[in-house]
Structure formats: C-alpha cells, structure tokens
C-alpha cells in the first residue's frame, strides 16, 4: 500500500490516445474504472431485467430501483418530468456504482475527482438550461426575476439569483467530490497507521486493534455515504429540473 494517502487518486495513463479538439482519448486508470462502472450497471440492470410477471429476487431488486427513482422524480419534479427518468436513473446508478466500486481497496474511485463530479453537475445544469429555454422560450429567464417584487429591486435580485443558480452545480460537484475524497483519505490514513503499528513490533501490533475497529466503523460509514451521496446528487438533479417546468413558481 502506498504511503501517501493522496496516491490513490493519481490518474495514470494506460495507453495514450489522440486529442480531438478539447477531448483527450488517453485511456487512464480513471477511464478504466468508468468503463467498469458503466459495465457493472448494465450487467446489474440486465440481470434484473427478466420481465416475469411474478418477479424473483433479482428482478425485484431491479424493479425496486426503477420505482425508487421514478417515485423520486415524480414527487420532486412532477409527473410531467417523466422523460428525464432515464437521465436521473443513469446519474444515480453511475454515481452509486462508482462510489461502491471505489470502496474496493484496489479500485480507483472516479467520483473522488472534481473533474468528474463537476462534469456530471454541468450535464445536469446544462440540461436544465437547454430544456428550460426549449420549453419556455425566453420566458424561462423569468426564474431569475421572482414575481411580485418591485422593478427597482431587480438590479440587486437578478445578479443574486444568477449567482444562486450557478452555485448549484458547484455545490453539487463539491459535495460529491469532497465526501468521496475525505472518506478515502480517512481510510487510507487508518490503513497506513495500522501498518505502521504492526510493523513496529508485537506490543504496538496489539494496539493496532483500535484503529482496525475504527477502520471497520469508517468502512461501514463510507458505504452509507456512498449510497447517500448518489441519492443526494440524483434528488438535487430532480429539484433543479423543477426550473424547467415551474418557471412561475420560482
């Protein structure tokens, strides 16, 4: 195990790829684990997709996830937002599986990188802007000008609303990134500490039981955080999608 707790986040190329415009096809360990994450989601959902009238356990799991996300979207955004269902579903499961796969000590956690979390947040906010203008035309910009305020207030309120709006993807990205990074740094530090104690000799080796117990606790907590952060990201996506459909309620 590496001695620097930050080494686990290193992105290293596996093979070089061409750069096309702003895109860089260089395949790294991060790319590898993204591919694994997507493949795992497809495998999981594909396995649960049995289509039987009376579902088995696996199929129930798949259907429960389906209904979980569908209910979340319906309750948070409204029934008119069903066409976003596949997107919210993909967001949730991509993040969930990336987080959970990252719990494996030898895996790379793609969601512990701000580039990834920020890109995911930007997908969402761009989708909101594009769909909002597509659906409402220029009236969509009313979300920056709350109704019922005197015109004089607008020069103050509109910049504030714009900043709030732009803050959303940032908080979204920072929250996921910070949680995943912090958890993994903690785990790594504990692991290093345990290795150090055990390496020093028998007496301190026995003392290593304390950080081992601590590690077990943190691992359990990190599993919870992994699921919770995927959920938070997905539900905030649903909340932000409100701005596509409820321009006047802002």
């Amino acid at each position: 195990m590496a001695s620097n707790p930050m080494d686990q986040f290193k992105v290293e190329p596996i093979f070089q790829g061409p750069k096309i415009g702003p895109f860089d096809l260089t395949f790294t360990n991060a790319s590898l684990w993204m591919v694994i994450t997507a493949a795992a989601v497809i495998l999981f959902m594909g396995m649960t997709m049995r289509g039987k009238l009376i579902p088995g356990r696996l199929q129930s799991m798949g259907e429960l996830s389906y209904e979980f996300i569908a209910d979340m979207l319906k309750e948070t955004t409204g029934p008119e937002a069903v066409k976003w269902f596949p997107y919210v579903f993909t967001i949730f499961f991509f993040i969930l599986f990336a987080n959970l796969i990252g719990m494996n000590p030898y895996a790379f956690t793609t969601t512990s990188h701000i580039a990834v979390t920020a890109a995911l947040a930007v997908f969402t906010i761009l989708a909101v802007i594009v769909a909002g203008i597509w659906k409402n035309g220029l009236k969509w910009f009313k979300i920056f000008a709350p109704a019922g305020l005197p015109i004089i207030m607008y020069p103050i309120i509109i910049p504030i609303e714009i900043i709030s709006f732009l803050s959303r993807p940032v908080t979204l990205a920072v929250r996921l990134f910070a949680n995943m990074t912090a958890g993994h740094v903690m785990l790594k530090l504990f692991a290093i500490f345990i290795a150090y104690l055990v390496g020093k000799g028998a007496v301190t080796g026995v003392a290593a039981i304390v950080p081992i117990l601590g590690t077990v606790g943190i691992v359990a907590l990190e599993f919870l955080v992994a699921a919770l952060q995927a959920f938070v990201f997905a539900i905030l996506t649903c909340v932000y999608l409100n701005d596509v459909y409820h321009v006047d309620h802002h």
Binding site: M72, E75, T76, I156, P159, I160, E161, I163, S164, S167, N179, L221, L224, V225, L228, F231, V232, I235, L236, V239, N242
Partner: peptide, 28 residues
C-alpha cells in the same frame, strides 16, 4: 448576498418541511 439568501431559503425549506426535498440533503 446570494449565499445568505440561499441559506435562508434552504433553512426555510428545512423548517417548513417543504415537500420538494423529501429527505434532507443531510450528511451523516
């Protein structure tokens, strides 16, 4: 100003048990 406003907004939402966020986006 935007930060303070959104803090008030979020706090108000948490307070009023607003329906839009069924489970608070709380961290452990």
């Amino acid at each position: 100003a935007a930060g303070v406003m959104s803090v008030f907004r979020v706090a108000g939402k948490m307070d009023a048990e607003n329906a839009h966020i069924p489970i608070g986006e709380d961290m452990p």
